[in-house]
Write a protein that binds this DNA or RNA. Structure first.
Lengths: 242, 242, 242, 242
DNA sequence: CATGAATGAGCCTTCATTCAT
DNA sequence: GATGAATGAAGGCTCATTCAT
């Protein structure tokens, strides 16, 4: 069984936490072990930082030995990548789901911005972990960006957004979002920081002044019921011998 | 003499490069050595990344031994900090000077945004180095932020900026600025990216739509007159490990 | 196999040597490696002194790499301690066993004193090693002192010893014993030094003049048959992170 | 001037302290510098231990630089030796002087034993320093031993001591004395420990039971007025070039 | 003589990775 | 698949010692 020995990361807000921790019942032994290792990696990354984490401590946190880790991942880098993908897929999809039924891109965008800010407020450890992993593994943020990009294009099509370039718009919203996450997670941000940032991002995207503030202020929709999480699929079932 | 062994970082755009490389003639031996070490650290940080740099390689790049490094800096962390402070003071002050005479905060802000973008276009290696150091040593970005914060408050006083909160505004402009620097430095950004980002940041700060675009499009002022100094020689961009 | 590269320490007198070097056959791999490392540490401590010994040389003497040492001991200090405990337990117990059946504390005390002197004569290297370790790791001498203290109290109860204070008596017998060991081991002592010292210690403890000389002169009992040495058990199988 | 920066060792009991610290007025500049360095070495040895002391800290404590140290001493070892000789000559002579006029060796011996114990009680730091230096530099204890040896031979000639061998007698009195110093300095010894140890040593040397106790209990003579301390003579006035 | 920057050998320690069991 | 002992290549850092000024 797992042996976390004092390691722990504050639980994710419910629906997100469930998604990650979900014990998919139909999984084979290999996938279950892999999942345990990823969970352990999350613990250790959060406690020591990605750079400071060691394979041996991840193995220990998973109740295994370091050799076992290498039956599932080729290198430490691989683990970081897998954790990044896993978090990205689970989190982003979940957040995206909560926007289901919202037709206007401006509101979808505001919700997206505020949802990440909300995550940082509810689970600072998770937010910092995501930012830490993203620094090593850019694919995580790329993953998040895909969803935002869809909304951006939608908003442009809906004539709610008027931007000089999509690339610049992405810089604006991702940059502001990340900074907000960090400030909130470290306790450096005032209350309603999420609304303020969302408001300014919308204005930057060309939404009229008052309308931006009004949209950003609307209540966040629920995250919705948890689905059965898809396991983080291994790229290959086996490490080939070199 | 220095022994860069193939290490080098592309020269900074003229006026900035001069500021950093300036061989102060009245400096004592200790101060000269310290300066050489900082220059060497910049080389190695740029080539290997801050995390991947080793004291030994910095010493070697400076034509010294590792022991000498410790006559000047207590730990590797200290070196990162010193490099950060050095760059921050030189760069920020220089950029700030170029805004002298500009009274309107909106234009000052646009210039600031675009100047960093311009740096990333002219000297991608320096831009990436700054972002890398900033990730380890937040004080560097804090330093930059101080100047932006002054302009922000000025713009609010001038009624050009209307923001929900100063903290959110700082997230917006620093976040967008950093992302733009990274995209430009890595070649991922289209031409005129700087203008586009500056435009959107101004809009986010509450500047009217068309006016934001107009201000952001104004020509950049010169960086100012060069000081006495030789720039460091540019050689190769990357060095393979032996 | 071990690679002592010229390192060596003169073999202990038989029964003691057997106790230390005993290859316990039922030992696991980990325990066997640990034992080899302790043996190697003894070699190196003896050759270079405790202070001059390096982890690398211990590893090399054990035919391993320095990393392996750290799988078994946290620090160099830990190794010194482990060697100290190991020697103390093995030697002291063995010497104490040889006094079995001796009822009078005065004679037990004389035997103890002379046995250590005898060790110094037979195996100067071991004696000097013990003194060296004891200087770094007082627990070794404490261990020895426990046995002497028992005899001291016994002798007081038997009215053979009359001392102003137990603490002073311990100073006398341990101090004289250590000095004698050193002088004998370095060849600075005349023959029968052990008897002379034992005589004087007994007199210091209040044994009448002639009787002290007579007791100290009695023949030493055999050390007795060797037992299978108990391995120096590791406290924990693994080092936990702090 | 000296710059002890928080370093300090409890002052020696007056007459001894004066002897060591005495500013011999007729000394040349070289001798004065040398003296300062020895004083500084005493500070640092006491604070960090002989093994943990660094040349640079000694230099700093003396208000000089490391280069200057090497104008006076060839190696670190040389410094330890010089400090040892200095302390030995000053202290031993001073203690010996205080016995002037005492004719009976038994009483001289008791005074010697108790004087070192007294030093340990009055100035634990000095006592521990002496023991520490003695471990590295046996000549210090040899020096002390010379005085004790004189008294030993005297006592034998006076028929007060009856010992199996002089070597054994030296082991007894030096060993017991050192142990007593350590226990007293570390606070591990009861009151009147000095008298108890002296009593037992005398008995060990053959002094009759009650008489030993009586002699050991006599009051200690004063240390006497301070003399002008002789400077610790440098072996050579100059380091020859290799 | 004093300075103090520079040296450089070498130490302890860490940890991703391998592999025989 | 799991184990976990072993590896070994570095890396950060210390400090006695040298030497040009």
């Amino acid at each position: 069984m797992s042996n976390f020995e004092g390691l722990s990361i504050a639980a994710l807000p419910m629906p997100l936490g469930q998604a990650l921790a979900a014990q998919a019942p139909g999984l084979g032994k290999r996938e279950r072990t892999r999942r345990q290792l990823l969970l352990a990696a999350v613990q250790v990354f959060s406690a020591r930082g990605v750079a400071g984490a060691t394979i041996q401590e991840i193995a220990q946190a998973a109740g295994m030995t370091s050799g076992t880790v290498y039956n599932h991942f080729d290198t430490k880098e691989t683990i970081v990548g897998a954790v990044g993908v896993w978090i990205a897929e689970t989190l982003c999809k979940r957040i995206n789901d909560s926007q289901r039924g919202i037709e206007r891109a401006a509101q979808r965008m505001a919700i997206g911005q505020r949802r990440y800010a909300w995550l940082a407020r509810e689970s600072p450890a998770w937010a910092l972990l995501i930012l830490d992993i993203a620094a090593t593994e850019p694919s995580l943020m790329t993953h998040v960006a895909v969803f935002a990009y869809e909304d951006l294009k939608l908003g442009i099509a809906q004539k709610d957004f008027r931007v000089p370039s999509e690339a610049a718009a992405m810089n604006l919203l991702m940059g502001a979002g990340n900074q907000a996450m960090r400030d909130i997670a470290t306790g450096a941000a005032p209350p309603d920081h999420d609304i303020a940032v969302a408001t300014m991002v919308l204005r930057g995207l060309g939404v009229p002044f008052e309308r931006a503030a009004e949209i950003a202020r609307r209540p966040l929709p629920d995250l919705g019921p948890p689905e059965t999480a898809k396991p983080p699929a291994a790229m290959a079932r086996r490490k080939p011998r070199p």
